[in-house]
């Protein structure tokens, strides 16, 4: 070994903070330190070299806590190369932009993959395993809270309510067993014509929705869509995947601002609920067809709902809807209507 690889550095003995100016070289497989009254020789196997961390000095340390502080990065690199030293894999990854960018792409890919496939799949699996009792409690609490703040008792005649529920109960399921459900009616000036499904199979229909149409078949169509939500456990899945998205976004952006975290979380959750709406439409359409009814019934009901919730020119309403596809939880209604009409 030639002196070309002797590097000047500062030596600390690990017991005091006194610096010693020394030279470090490698001779016959030993690290050798000389200068300022210090004279040490150690086999390379007992010497550790810290990772390169930018401009920070690198540390060549010995088992007893003594070490050399090296600022001559090029000199140390040459010395290390001459001894056949190889930096740990992670250190090499961090040192190159190409690897960093690959890691960046990898992270983004993994996040996208988790969001699009892994999380919905996991939520579906988990929803299957949530005990009936938990869903019961959750649903009863939700309904009780809504009864208190949003709903009044239904003003529809009891016979009319029973007749609708009975007719719907007679529909034969397109696949598998009948989906257990219960239909309840409520008057709600606050939310208007609407229907939704709770995790335990309770389907809530507002009087306003029943009053929207003269055709009972159209009401059945809406119920069929809601039963799709029940059958595929959508409420639970949305709670599960939505809260995971919320947590991750809050973790990522949380130390910046909780407000900054709320908006992207809401956008990401909206995409999930659009997926679920499509699934429920598909189930509803199958249930209707299987019982000799047309999926177009659901389509015309959607049009009516669209008209009461977005009054004005039907053309502009449809346009506004499609523009807000990425913002709204229901897929552009025009598109859903088309899909239902075409599904024959």
């Amino acid at each position: 070994m030639t002196d070309a690889h002797a590097i000047a550095c500062r030596y600390f003995d690990g017991r005091t903070t006194t610096p010693h100016a020394v030279t470090l070289r490698v001779e016959n497989g030993d690290a050798r330190i000389e200068g300022d009254g210090i004279e040490r020789r150690l086999p390379l196997a007992e010497v550790r070299v810290s990772e390169r961390m930018g401009a920070a000095p690198r540390l060549v340390s010995f088992a007893d806590g003594a070490y050399c502080e090296v600022r001559d990065h090029a000199g140390l690199d040459a010395l290390l190369a001459a001894t056949g030293f190889r930096a740990p894999m992670v250190a090499r990854l961090q040192s190159r932009w190409s690897f960093a960018l690959a890691a960046l792409a990898g992270c983004m890919g993994l996040v996208a993959l988790s969001y699009l496939y892994v999380l919905p799949w996991a939520a579906e699996q988990a929803a299957e395993h949530i005990p009936r009792s938990a869903m019961e409690t959750l649903s009863q609490q939700t309904l009780a809270a809504m009864d208190e703040h949003l709903f009044k008792p239904s003003a529809l005649a009891a016979e009319r309510r029973e007749a609708l529920a009975k007719r719907f109960g007679l529909l034969a399921p397109p696949d598998g067993d009948k989906v257990p459900h219960a239909i309840v009616f409520r008057l709600s000036p606050a939310i208007g014509a609407n229907a939704f499904a709770l995790p335990n199979g309770t389907i809530v229909v507002t009087d306003e929705l029943v009053d929207l149409t003269d055709s009972d078949d159209e009401i059945l169509a809406v119920l069929a869509h809601e039963l799709g939500h029940v059958q595929r456990r959508h409420a639970l899945r949305q709670i599960l995947q939505g809260s995971v998205v919320g947590l991750v976004v809050a973790w990522y952006l949380g130390d910046i601002s909780s407000l900054a975290a709320a908006i992207p979380a809401a956008l990401l959750q909206a995409r999930y609920s659009r997926e679920l709406e499509r699934e429920a439409d598909a189930y509803g359409a199958r249930l209707l067809r299987f019982n000799g009814l047309s999926p177009a019934l659901l389509a015309s009901m959607l049009e009516k709902l669209e008209r009461v919730h977005h009054p004005g020119d039907p053309g502009t309403a449809a346009k506004a809807q499609s523009r807000s596809d990425y913002l709204s939880s229901h897929p552009a209604t025009a598109e859903r209507i088309r899909a239902l009409r075409e599904s024959r």
Binding site: G54, F99, A100
Partner: peptide, 21 residues
């Protein structure tokens, strides 16, 4: 302080990717 943003960015992103996998 001798650190730099671009150096730490590489450490951060590699750490993040390895933490993920």
């Amino acid at each position: 302080f001798t650190g730099s943003g671009s150096e730490y960015f590489r450490i951060w992103i590699v750490n993040l990717a390895l933490t993920f996998i």
